[in-house]
Amino acid sequence: MTFTSRTPRVVAARKLQRRRDREQSGRFLAEGPQAVREALAAGVVLELFATADAMSRHSNLDVHFTEVDDEALASLAETVQPQGLVAVCEQVDVPLAEALAKKPRLVAVVAEIRDPGNAGTVLRTADAAGAGTVIFAGDAVDPYNGKCVRASAGSLFHVDVVRTPIDVVTPLREAGLQVLATSGYGADDLDTLADDDVLARPTAWLFGSEAHGLPGELLEAADRQVRVPIYGGAESLNLAAAAAVCLYASARAQR
């Protein structure tokens, strides 16, 4: 049986494109082969919608497919050229205390970041740099926003994702992490901290939005305010680039 865009299960899944419905159900959509493979490996796929062509191309996936027509798949997907697979998944975030109990040596905190593409890219970068935890603090974008899930390229399923209020510094410090806040006007220079072996310690990095930076209470509460040196004529780095530089500087120092 091939489902259409009007089939009740497809209609119900499509509602997960809205944040309210994701939060009420504890479910979200993962689109495309990469995200689906990682979701399957994590054991969180509840249903996998696929077109007949995608079922043929991905027959190696050890999972039951729910066949849908092209129109139904397009209604579930949020990309212009969907790749034929959309999974309904259980949300994977964990409480802050549970994540910190694992004693991560590198943590990324995205504080009140609203852009889902930036947030997903930071999540992917943190995973690549070996961070064990990514924290969405305060009024941040939903990590299960479709664009954020796609930008994470499967990394959403590799790290501990936490959603928490903005007052995150104290529990981070109590978990043995130094807390470094990124700021274009920071008193400390990233290169100097690297040279002085400061970055070899277990570290939580705080990243704010490109438009407004970090909230003042986080800047004041952090152990240090750190700027990324600019050697050329650029005014600044965007959020994702700055996060990559800082996280990899810590990753290198810790290794």
Rank of each mutant, 00 (worst) to 15 (best):
A187E: 15
P33T: 04
R114E: 14
E23Y: 02
K103R: 15
D189T: 12
L247W: 08
T182V: 02
P229A: 03
V36E: 06
V110G: 03
T170A: 15
L48E: 07
L106V: 12
V228K: 11
A97F: 01
P215R: 06
T192F: 00
V11P: 06
L214F: 09
A137F: 09
P143D: 06
T182N: 02
V161I: 15
D197L: 01
A175Y: 07
L96C: 03
V109P: 11
L40C: 03
E112G: 05
T121F: 06
A77P: 06
G184W: 04
H64T: 13
V245L: 14
G84C: 05
V149K: 07
A77F: 01
C148L: 14
D196P: 01
E174H: 12
L40S: 05
E174I: 00
G120M: 08
R22C: 01
G213P: 11
A50D: 12
G84L: 03
G26K: 09
F3W: 12
T133W: 07
A72Y: 12
V110K: 05
L46D: 12
C89M: 05
W205N: 11
A241T: 15
D167G: 04
G208F: 05
A39G: 09
T182W: 02
T164E: 14
Q83D: 09
A74W: 07
A35L: 13
H212E: 14
E23F: 04
R105F: 03
L46I: 09
Q225C: 09
P143V: 06
T192L: 09
E210V: 02
N60V: 02
V179S: 08
L96A: 03
E78W: 04
V169P: 11
